[in-house]
Simulated scan of single mutants.
Amino acid sequence: MSVSSFVTYLSLEKKYAENTVVAYHADLQEFALFCSENFKQAVIDKVDYTVVRSWIVELVNLKHSNRTINRKISSLKAYYKFLQKIGEIEISPLLKHKSLKTPKKIEIPFSEDEMNKILFEIPFPENFEGVRDKLIVELLYATGIRRVELVNLRLSNLDVDQGLIKVLGKRNKERVLPLLGSLKKLFALYLQERRGVEGSEKIDFVFLSKKGDKIYETLVYRVVNHYLGLVSSKVKKSPHILRHTFATHLLNKGADLNSVKELLGHASLASTQVYTHNSIAELKKVHLLSHPRNKK
């Protein structure tokens, strides 16, 4: 009963995305199955840390990565925190648990030259799909919005004349973002092309497939991956890398970290600080080239 209440809590009160709720639920079901098969304890509310530790050992033996194991344990942590909140338990069995060490994940952003090649040198088809795809790439890079935010962008949240878009982020948190002049022109061109798509007048979502349906996240990934692949051999060529590139380029140009945090829709500065390592590298380069002591 507590698990179903927890799932409802995540959906309705915490307003987590559906995929996140499904992942949490799956982790709890997996742990419950492990308990019932190995400890004869089908009720996961009553376990102690020795049971959790045994599950971690099994996950390691099953060759799960430390990152995956930490994610699963995070689901348990959230569940036991919920049980404390509703008074079912006093102390979480994971109170003194320490996460497994994971290698630092360094994502390499695209350079300004690479982005300029995509936006000014690579030819996009002069039709609905070509205009749409160029808008997708430029919007992701120029605003740093998430892929899901782009997919769910509505016409009612778009003001081309004022150069503003309203984005619905994580946990239904709204933020308003400015549009560059080039984006305003591209939006105007796209909306003109969009009118020619059959059934488009019935859909409030901005981005459509050529069949007139709302686009989906996989399509956005394919578009971005294709065009980034034309200018670079980097392994990661995803919408998230464009978000990473957006943040890095702003910070390299001297943007305030708090401002970048607001533009990205992060809840805390800690999330934004992962983008600063590239800025520090850029500052080191400028320092080496500019400081008079380096010339001696």
Rank of each mutant, 00 (worst) to 15 (best):
V3R: 13
V7M: 11
L10M: 11
S11C: 10
K14G: 09
A17V: 04
A17Q: 09
V21H: 01
Y24R: 03
E30I: 08
F31G: 02
F31S: 05
A32I: 09
A32T: 13
F39I: 02
F39P: 04
V43N: 15
K46G: 08
V47K: 00
D48G: 12
D48R: 09
Y49M: 08
T50V: 10
V51T: 10
S54L: 00
I56F: 02
E58Y: 04
N61I: 08
L62A: 15
K63W: 05
H64E: 03
S65R: 11
T68L: 02
I69C: 05
I69V: 12
I69F: 07
R71W: 03
S74K: 02
L76C: 00
K77H: 10
A78G: 07
A78P: 03
Y79W: 07
K85F: 11
E88H: 10
E90M: 10
L95G: 05
L95A: 14
K98Y: 10
K105V: 11
P109A: 08
F110N: 03
F110A: 02
E112G: 03
N116V: 04
K117T: 07
K117W: 00
L119D: 00
F120S: 12
P123D: 11
F124I: 02
N127L: 07
F128K: 02
F128H: 02
G130C: 06
V131W: 00
D133M: 03
V137D: 00
E138W: 00
L139I: 09
L139W: 03
Y141C: 01
A142K: 04
A142G: 06
T143F: 03
I145F: 01
I145H: 06
R146T: 01
V148N: 12
V151W: 04
N157G: 11
I165L: 09
I165C: 01
L168N: 05
P178A: 13
L180G: 14
K185V: 12
A188P: 02
L189W: 11
L189V: 11
L191H: 05
R194A: 05
G196P: 04
G199H: 09
S200G: 08
F205L: 12
S209A: 07
K214Q: 13
E217P: 15
T218S: 13
T218C: 11
T218W: 14
T218M: 13
N225C: 06
G229Y: 00
V231S: 06
S233C: 08
K234S: 01
V235F: 13
K236E: 10
P239A: 09
L242D: 04
R243V: 01
F246G: 01
A247M: 05
L251C: 04
L251I: 08
N252D: 15
G254T: 06
G254S: 08
A255V: 08
A255E: 10
N258R: 15
K261L: 09
K261R: 15
E262I: 07
L263M: 14
G265V: 00
H266L: 05
H266Y: 09
L269F: 08
S271D: 01
T272H: 03
Q273E: 14
S279P: 01
S279D: 11
I280G: 00
E282M: 11
L283S: 07
L283E: 02
K285G: 09
S290R: 10
P292G: 02
